[in-house]
Amino acid sequence: MRRLIDRLSAARRNDGGFTLIELLIVIIILGVLAAIVVFSVRGITDTGDEAACKANYKTAQTALEAYYANDATNSYPAALADLVPDFLATDPSAAGVDAKVKVGYTHITTPSESYTLTSGSACTP
């Protein structure tokens, strides 16, 4: 009986760890899971940029129309910076704004008073 116990404990001592195949399978599984997470997070960021771009565009458009309605001469401002702080908290066309969410503004005086807004690269058509 003692021999059997000695052989079993010797067998356990020699079986101490994972095989190379087991480790490779675990590493592959972790790599696949990491790739799935990375691609999922990237989509979330793109959605946020798109929402911020659309919000900046609509906010600038609303502020321009409010400025026009309140202006005694019924004209649009020369630049979006003229709307700060009365109609906008910050200038969405400023140099420090990310190009993905930046709003471009062009004041048109002839043949009639109007403007053109352009949206950032994150806005989908």
Rank of each mutant, 00 (worst) to 15 (best):
L20Y: 05
R3I: 14
N56R: 01
G96D: 11
G43C: 11
V32D: 03
D15C: 14
D91L: 04
F39V: 04
P125R: 00
V84W: 08
A11G: 14
Y76H: 13
P77R: 15
V32M: 08
A51Y: 00
E22S: 13
T110Y: 06
L88F: 15
G16L: 09
A52C: 04
L83M: 06
G96I: 01
A81P: 03
A35F: 11
L23T: 08
Y115I: 02
T19R: 13
G104H: 11
V32C: 09
T118P: 11
R13N: 11
N56W: 01
S9W: 14
R13M: 04
A63G: 09
L24Y: 06
P92T: 05
L64H: 00
L8S: 15
A11D: 10
R42P: 04
A69I: 02
S93N: 01
D82T: 07
R3K: 12
Y57E: 00
F39H: 06
S119N: 07
S9R: 15
T45V: 15
P111S: 09
A52E: 00
Y67K: 04
A78T: 05
T73S: 15
T47K: 07
S121L: 02
Y68V: 06
S121P: 05
K54D: 03
V37T: 14
V32A: 12
T124V: 03
T118K: 05
I25A: 07
A122P: 02
P111R: 10
D86M: 12
N74A: 15
L80W: 09
Y76M: 10
L88S: 07
L80Q: 07
A94P: 01
D49K: 07
T124M: 06
Y105E: 02
V97P: 00
R2K: 14
A72G: 02
T110N: 11
K58Q: 05
F39C: 10
A66C: 09
I21E: 10
V84A: 15
N56K: 00
F39L: 12
T19P: 11
V97L: 01
P77D: 05
Q61A: 01
D86I: 06
G120C: 00
L23A: 14
T109V: 13
R2F: 10
T59M: 07
A79E: 12
I5C: 14
G120D: 01
I36K: 10
R42L: 15
E22A: 14
T116F: 00
K102S: 05
T116N: 01
Q61L: 15
A89Y: 01
T62I: 09
A81N: 08
K58A: 10
A34L: 03
I28F: 12
K102I: 09
V37R: 05
E50V: 00
S93F: 04
G31E: 03
L20N: 10
L23K: 05
L4I: 12
L24P: 03
L20Q: 11
R3F: 02
C53Q: 02
T90G: 08
T45S: 13
V32E: 04
T109M: 10
V84K: 11
S112W: 03
G104Q: 04
A79S: 15
D91S: 02
T73G: 10
D98T: 10
D91M: 11
D49Q: 15
I21N: 15
